[in-house]
Design a protein around this nucleic acid. Structure first.
Lengths: 200, 200
DNA sequence: CGAGTCGTTGAACGGAATCAATCGTCGTGG
DNA sequence: CCACGACGATTGATTCCGTTCAACGACTCG
């Protein structure tokens, strides 16, 4: 098992649903009966505040599952709304739990990917403590290649990457340019090569 | 099972070790044989860079386990160093895995707490996208009480809290003062009461 | 072909970081 | 037992850099 959603593979009960931009998938307090997978588009998990604005708890992009915590909760703790036109798959929570219980060896695989995800989230979080945009991006790149190579492809858009890094997209462009000028990286479209002397 | 480290309860093989500030626990590349639990103190998981400075991947505080990902990896991917005088428990990875495999029902509990941890990390990460210090702290407080109450106790020091929120500690003090002046919160030492109208 | 979005660069602003200083507390060791 | 050092909590002044607003070309998609 490589990803959380591989658990869903054997589940043929999946429904699918298309959402327009701004459309609600579920609301805080609704009974938690489904686990979701984003086929394409983007789902925002938000919590509304009294002042009218809302706080984003998570942004699920295409290819990722979300609301997994609903497995162990009676109701959804947040509201899910499509950010752009989005297609999602719906898996019944009860089926997922049954499948989980039937296969202890698969469950161990699940623990493995979750441990890695936690590790990854923790380091992404620590990245945010780097104030300098240049340095934050550079360390992000180093984390991505992880000493295995000195090249990587940016799969998402630069705008999404900026969001993930907690930077304005303008800042990201400028910082990439600055890193290139310093000679720490080379860029060719979405392909980024890191100067070998920084790759351990 | 409430926490990851409850898995360790039945393991009597745990050694314990005391580290002075600055002392290394393990280094990047060392064979991964132990999983750890911080009894008291603070352990930083870092990656050293060519420029001499190091990037923090995670900070494990007392009462938490760390290096869980080592369960599924041959070698440690980062270096662990005590930030202040620290006591840790060492659990042999092989024992932990054995215990994991022996009890499929406990493993499901593990999946549950990991799912919650992931959910929590994701929302902490999204909190960082709130630029305004006042608003970031306020949303953090709301997240902590989660509608269950309108009061909470800050367990850690304010300095550590500032770090968790990605703010300079001076900024945290000022923002707390500002929130209090606005009447959104009331403070009495480490006890914080949130204005009822903001608690959903 | 026009609307929308991405990628990119310029200019100005604002708010958080940083530097600095003070006070209180806690532990420690001589 | 007290002096000293270390650190947390707090407030003030200044700096700096990332955000924000703005504008433009390129590209895609309906």
């Amino acid at each position: 098992m490589k990803r959380f959603d591989d658990l869903f593979e054997n589940l043929h009960e999946a429904k699918n649903r298309h959402l327009k931009a701004g459309e609600n998938l579920f609301q805080r307090g609704d009974p938690a009966v489904w686990i979701f997978f984003v086929v394409r588009g983007r789902i925002k998990l938000v919590r509304d505040t009294v002042e009218g604005n809302s706080v984003i708890l998570h942004v699920a992009v295409s290819g990722s599952s979300f609301a997994e915590a609903a497995l162990f909760s009676d109701r959804y703790h947040c509201t899910a709304v499509a950010d752009i036109p989005t297609e999602v798959l719906l898996y019944p929570k009860s089926e997922v739990l049954k499948s989980l219980r039937g296969k202890p060896d698969e469950t161990e695989g699940l623990v493995e990917i979750m441990a890695k995800q936690i590790q990854n989230l923790r380091s992404t979080l620590e990245l945010r403590n780097i104030r300098s945009a240049d340095e934050r991006i550079f360390q992000y790149l180093l984390l991505q290649v992880d000493g295995k190579s000195n090249e990587l492809n940016i799969e998402t858009t630069y705008k999404d990457l900026a969001y993930e890094l907690g930077l304005a997209h303008e800042t990201l462009y400028r910082a990439l340019g600055s890193l290139e000028k310093k000679g720490k990286i080379e860029r060719d479209g979405r392909r980024i090569k890191i100067d070998l002397k920084y790759v351990i």
